[in-house]
Design a protein around this nucleic acid. Structure first.
Lengths: 191, 191
DNA sequence: ATACGATTTGACCAAATAGTCAAGAGGGTA
DNA sequence: TACCCTCTTGACTATTTGGTCAAATCGTAT
């Protein structure tokens, strides 16, 4: 039962924070959705902030890692797989945007602990992209280039594309942006 | 005195919301910074939300409009001017990020009134970019292309670049991203 | 069965929050 | 001077917030 309760809290916290931001996340709602009482929550976490940080670390980091790590660790067609993933609208929630970007925008300049935590996750995110490009270069799918820069550019555009769709309320803005990114990356293909 | 008070409230609200987000903006702090008493504020605005929406409209919209409008309405070297602006780090606050993006991320999926207001500003933003590219095409600075798409791509990357710098705490991420965008746009130059 | 640490319960608290309001100050006009 | 409308003052309220705590319960090992 112990791990169950803790996990329900993590899940509910992640959802609440994703939907309303950290500052807008009401502890009462988290508890109601998790079906956990207040005192019980304070048995597992010292306060709201630590619980939110745990939820972020465990949910977002893991999500990014598994999603892109799979591509990196496959045995070929790295770029093709990356493009499939970028084009997949089903893994995105355009209404709510990017969980990581939302939190960076809201919290990075407000709270040091959030800042530290988000820095790590964001760096991981970029690193995974770089790794995929490194593999692609090694496999001869694209020519030698500054993969770190390309990863930065890709992540920036990806985040901007998600933001555009959220701002306009039109998911086509995401797909159009991503399509342009893909054709840009394709210009790095062998040739 | 009347307009003075109102303007101080708008300015202080904008700063507070920019720094802490709307949900984290404390009315008490806004009032203290503006040097205005509570009842006085409620004479000018019906509530906190309307005051914030007014601040957003008046400050952000105007800011974007004037900043980019000037380029659009100049008489040549459109791309060159745009690049100068993009490269200008002095007009950016990398710690706090983009005032528009911050609010979109925080509020678009939470509150309809914010959503409507931000949609308008974001559309304006993209439209100004498109207009600059249209002028550049007309002036023969770049070849015919889908300027709407190019504007979308540019704005997405710009917002992503600002986010990257905020997330990593390193403004070079912004400059590097923007440099890549510029060289991409230059590939549209006549030839 | 008993004991004991890990969990759960829900009432309670202090602080902060946005918003209200009645009284008054100020300045212009008749 | 008297009037009136705009604006200001600051005390007050209702509500929500995150957080505390002591007592009850559960689960398991002895």
């Amino acid at each position: 039962m112990k791990e169950n309760t803790r996990q329900r809290l993590i899940d509910a916290t992640y959802e609440e924070v994703y939907s309303h931001g950290y500052q807008g996340a009401a502890l009462a709602d988290i508890l109601a959705n998790a079906g956990v009482h207040k005192g019980s929550m304070y048995h597992f976490f010292p306060n709201k902030k630590e619980m939110a940080l745990s939820a972020i670390k465990e949910k977002i980091a893991q999500r990014f890692a598994t999603r892109y790590q799979a591509i990196k660790e496959s045995d070929g067609d790295y770029l093709k797989q990356l493009f499939v993933m970028l084009r997949d609208g089903n893994i995105r929630d355009f209404k709510r945007g990017c969980p990581l970007a939302n939190l960076v925008q809201e919290m990075s300049n407000i709270d040091e602990d959030f800042d530290r935590t988000l820095k790590v996750i964001y760096a991981q995110f970029r690193k995974v992209f770089k790794s995929i490009y490194d593999e692609a270069v090694r496999a001869g799918e694209m020519r030698e280039c500054d993969t770190r820069q390309l990863a930065l550019f890709s992540v920036a555009l990806l985040e901007g594309a998600i933001l555009s769709a959220k701002a306009s309320g039109d998911s086509r803005d995401y797909f159009d942006s991503v399509e342009m990114l893909i054709s840009y990356i394709e210009s790095y293909k062998h040739g």
